[in-house]
Design a protein around this nucleic acid. Sequence first.
DNA 1: AGGGATGTTCAGGCTACCTGTCAATCAGGT
DNA 2: ACCTGATTGACAGGTAGCCTGAACATCCCT
Lengths: 149, 149
Amino acid sequence: MSMADSPPGHDLSSRVNTIAMLGRAYSLLGFQIVDGVVGTGIPIKPKHSAVFAQIAPHGVRLTDLARGANISSQAMGELVDELEDLGYVRREPDPRDRRAKLVKLTQSGTRVVAAGRSVVADLESRIDEKLGHAGHRELRRLLTRLLED
Amino acid sequence: MSMADSPPGHDLSSRVNTIAMLGRAYSLLGFQIVDGVVGTGIPIKPKHSAVFAQIAPHGVRLTDLARGANISSQAMGELVDELEDLGYVRREPDPRDRRAKLVKLTQSGTRVVAAGRSVVADLESRIDEKLGHAGHRELRRLLTRLLED
DNA sequence: AGGGATGTTCAGGCTACCTGTCAATCAGGT
DNA sequence: ACCTGATTGACAGGTAGCCTGAACATCCCT
């Protein structure tokens, strides 16, 4: 997904609406993930998270990555090209389907994922600090209910 | 603003993290605003909300709109061009500064804003239904705390 | 074996941004 | 009053990140 780098509108009324608040919170925190990883000296772009979020040890097919990120397989192909150039992933032929290729993390890519996990964990503990552990759990519970069905 | 039309990555760990949940919730609801307004027969695009969210009865200068949306004044200029073509806004010279122009809503634009407010209000009452009024208030309280400082 | 579906890639195009530049105008100091 | 630097908005050109269309190999079903 692409993150807005702005207070994302959708206000349209004097009292700030809940949806705008969700957007602002996401935008604020989402950028801190990428910034955090980049801050450790690893060059990545926001869109790359669409791959890292889905990758699995046994490898994932391009088409499945594209479906999961809700973009065309062509767009995902370019994305994987970039990550291949950066040395974070490689393509291997799928032994079970000679049309397909499996996208797998390289050692370097594994380090990126580890850095990402660590940054996310840090951000989550900062949420814990701000809301209290109970507040954070309550927030997650409310979001879960908002997202279900 | 740009909304993702996908579950927004940033997962990077097995348990879905809070930031990803915020993104999903925002993405889900944000699109429903535009869809709702478009559903009433008014053609707009998501990015247009960057203008409608900031517009004021006395008119706003292009530069201020750009700053508020966190985009370049050139990009905002294009956006206002589009909205002018659609008949939702017009540019008037600013009587106090002959360099500047004030972007104001037309009657038609006022109807768009009214439709937007109404759709947002509907979505907010659906949040009320899902979380209960108290739950919704609690969500807003938590988000406010997350966004402050 | 034949025929349609699927996985990947190449080519071309569009949209929403960006930076660089410019002329007009403003505002502050001398 | 005048010069200087900042600001407003328009014009031009460029890039990133997506898209659709088409090609080709391979799969899977009959």
